[in-house]
Design a protein around this nucleic acid. Structure first.
Length: 670
RNA sequence: GGGCCCGUAGCUCAAACGGAUAGAGCAUCGGAUUUCUAAUCCGGUGGUUGCAGGUUCGAAUCCUGCCGGGCCUACCA
């Protein structure tokens, strides 16, 4: 409703100006939010119109105010120096719409969206960096689904790469385990932890004797032959670790629909199909001499302008330093090549498909499918989508751009335009946090503001460990507050709080900010945190419980007359309560902003889920202030009491809604 | 060398195609509870937005140049 009002306001202002100045070339009407409620609910800066209309901003603003006429939902307009048109919403109109949860008709959006996230190498336990990825991705999925879009969630599994090979080497060459012994180990409750330690040992083993690296190459090669014993072991390990990753993410209510694996991209020859098209279209060129002799290369994304710059004639030749090797001189294809083929499949441009079989069933009966060479007959239709979003950290932006350019080069400009690298910065550890974990730091490291997590070194905070700590910490608090509750009830509440804290923590930073991880901040339940927002909802719920009224149906049953609403919302000192209603009205507006990114620029800026966190916090903060100032159940004026209850119900509804989009549920008590 | 990102309060972060007095949380100091449970609220302290120019009615935001930091830049994945 808020967004609807904003758009209509901009439209009407533009029409008004066009009527006054026919033929004038006008800039877009920008609608902002004034710094304070007293000023109004919308603010339109008039400065940009001064020059084209050859008139003073204040004069133009006054003219608009006088001539625009009645706009539904808008109560009044004021001209404010040095050149703003401040607009006040018709408060009772908006409140009535909000209480009834009326929404303007949703735009019809078409086409399935594919979101790829997590994509953790299946060779060790997930860590906090993976948590950021999965939480961002999962929240984005929830945003899209809230907006009515159809979404498939994919988690790409690189089960044939060096990282898996390294752990295979660890089992077979360092620990000298048999296949049966490894199989037994995979049944450990936290087999991924075992691999975490082993992986770090393998790295040391390589360091100790460079000869050992030869084993890695042999193993890597052997994994590609599905008939080999090594491949069977690799599959055993990667599948077991993958299962653990799904369990870890399920703890956070993160689910997937389909797990495409590199092994199938290999064995179903996706690359061959892509290779032919890439050669035909000239995206790939063969180098017959120089550094990359014998390789198939393409232009590195982001280098060299499309046309000829200095020296480079348009002969299809690419300067050596701008070359990206896609096929090595020994004929094998690198990661990017496979990724190009995979993305052609995503858009339905490859002409091949995976086989599918069920892999994992969530407690809610939802099935997660996995790729396989010979799959089940009946399966959902994956791929062939209209838009894709890849949640991958910023370090891989060049590889992502290369894939996009390959699609463009193949003539699939439309697909390339609907390919978004949902980029974000990494999670690193503060030096203090690293020290707490027992790592000895060099003086150089101590002076850094953060230190990168390294799976190879076994340096990092494991996802399950962090979650365990959060639950334990919340449990302690719940135990002392609610000793009367049963143990399972207390565990359940503590778990919800822990998830709330973790998901909020990962979402409150904007994407391009490196998270310097610190236990103190992450384990905090006070201030700008998930539990703060959850607690606000619990408070709201408890008011209704005490009142003996059902919060969810209260708003349906009740109705206010416009004069009553106006009395409560526009009277003396009502700004503070109005602010709460106004903020509540913004939920769908905020969700829209999260999805489309902040600017409507080209190229588009990826989505930003952090605005959700800001919105939730603002709602909770306003509510807590309101809660403290207005005793509700003891309000003597019955009509006013109903209005205050309605205020609580609306805020509560919007808080629950927004938290749900963030993947955060609310416990019954805290 | 080239590409991308960052530099805002003691710390961690915000700031809506450039807009009204740059805001929060944490920390710190001082207050608030016989009430819908204080995982809360109110108030104080704390800023030359890395530096220097430029663009304009107006710059944390755009441009240029410095300074400082991070990531990418392999016939690794």
């Amino acid at each position: 409703m808020y967004r609807y009002l904003e758009q209509r306001l901009a439209q009407r202002v533009l029409e008004c100006l066009e009527r006054r100045h026919p033929g004038a070339v006008l800039p877009a009407v920008v609608v902002e939010q004034p710094p304070k409620v007293e000023l109004g609910d919308f603010a339109i800066p008039i400065f940009p119109f001064a020059k084209p209309l050859r008139s003073a901003p204040l004069k133009i603003a006054e003219a608009i105010r006088a001539e625009i006429g009645a706009v539904e939902g808008i109560a009044e307009m004021q001209v404010a120096p040095p050149g703003y048109l401040n607009v006040k919403v018709d408060r009772s109109w908006m409140a009535a719409a909000l209480a009834a949860d009326r929404k303007p008709a949703a735009e019809i959006s078409s086409g399935k969206i594919l979101v790829e996230h997590s994509s953790i190498n299946p060779n060790k336990a997930a860590h906090i960096g993976h948590l950021r990825n999965a939480i961002l991705g999962d929240t984005f999925v929830r945003l899209l689904r809230y907006a009515g879009r159809e979404v498939d969630i994919q988690n790409y599994i690189d089960n044939t790469g060096v990282q898996v090979a390294d752990v295979v080497v660890g089992f077979t060459h360092i620990e000298k385990k048999s296949r049966a012994e490894i199989e037994a180990l995979t049944r450990l409750p936290r087999f991924d932890y075992y691999c975490w330690d082993l992986y770090a040992r393998v790295s040391q083993w390589y360091e100790a004797d460079k000869q050992n690296r030869q084993v890695r190459l042999e193993t890597l090669h052997a994994i590609e032959d599905p008939a080999s014993e090594t491949a069977v072991i690799a599959d055993l390990i990667s599948t077991a670790v993958l299962r653990r990753h799904l369990e870890t993410m399920d703890r956070l209510d993160i689910e997937y629909d389909f797990l495409p694996r590199e092994s199938e991209i290999l064995h179903l020859h996706f690359w061959n199909a892509a290779f032919e098209k890439l050669k035909e279209s000239g995206v790939l060129t063969f180098e017959s001499e120089g550094k990359n002799k014998g390789c198939w290369v393409m232009r590195r994304a982001g280098t060299g302008k499309a046309s000829t710059t200095e020296g480079t004639e348009n002969t299809g030749e690419i300067k050596e330093e701008d070359q990206k090797v896609i096929v090595r001189s020994n004929g094998t294809v690198g990661y990017v090549g496979k990724d190009i083929a995979y993305h052609m499949w995503k858009f339905g441009l490859l002409g091949r498909d995976f086989g599918y079989r069920k892999f994992y069933r969530y407690p809610n009966e939802h099935d997660c499918w996995i790729s396989s060479v010979d799959g089940e007959k009946d399966h959902p239709h994956f791929g062939d989508v209209a838009e894709i979003y890849n949640v991958i950290d910023a370090r891989q932006s060049e590889a992502q751009n290369t894939v996009i350019e390959a699609l463009r080069g193949l003539g699939h400009g439309e697909a390339a335009d609907h390919y978004t690298h949902f980029s974000y910065e990494m999670v690193a550890l503060t030096p203090r946090c690293a020290a707490e974990l027992g790592y000895t730091l060099s003086d150089e490291d101590k002076s850094r503001s953060y230190i990168e997590v390294s799976g190879r070194k076994g340096f990092g905070v494991k996802a399950d460990d962090l979650l365990d700590q959060l639950i334990a910490s919340a449990k302690k608090e719940v135990d002392s507050r609610h000793p009367q509750l049963s143990e399972p009830e207390r565990v359940s509440i503590a778990t919800q709080i822990a998830i709330g804290a973790l998901r909020y923590f990962m979402l409150k930073y904007t994407r391009q900010s490196v998270i310097a991880f610190d236990f103190k901040d992450a384990l905090s339940f006070e201030g700008e945190t998930g539990p703060y927002a959850q607690y606000a909802v619990v408070r709201a719920s408890s008011i209704f419980r005490k009142a003996g009224v059902d919060a969810d149906t209260f708003l349906i049953a009740i109705s206010f007359s416009a004069p009553d609403l106006a009395a409560y919302l526009t009277g003396e000192g009502s700004d503070e309560i109005w602010e709460l209603w106004l903020a509540s009205a913004k939920t769908s507006y905020v969700i829209d902003q999260c999805i489309s990114g902040r600017y409507k620029t080209y190229p588009p800026i990826p989505p930003e889920p952090a605005y959700l966190a800001k919105h939730v916090f603002q709602l909770a903060q306003l509510f807590n202030t309101f809660y403290h100032r207005h005793p509700i159940l003891s309000e003597p004026d019955e009509k006013r009491k109903q209005f205050l209850l309605a205020t609580v119900a609306v805020v509560r509804r919007e808080l629950i809604r927004t938290l749900a989009v963030m993947g955060i549920s609310v416990p019954p008590v805290m």
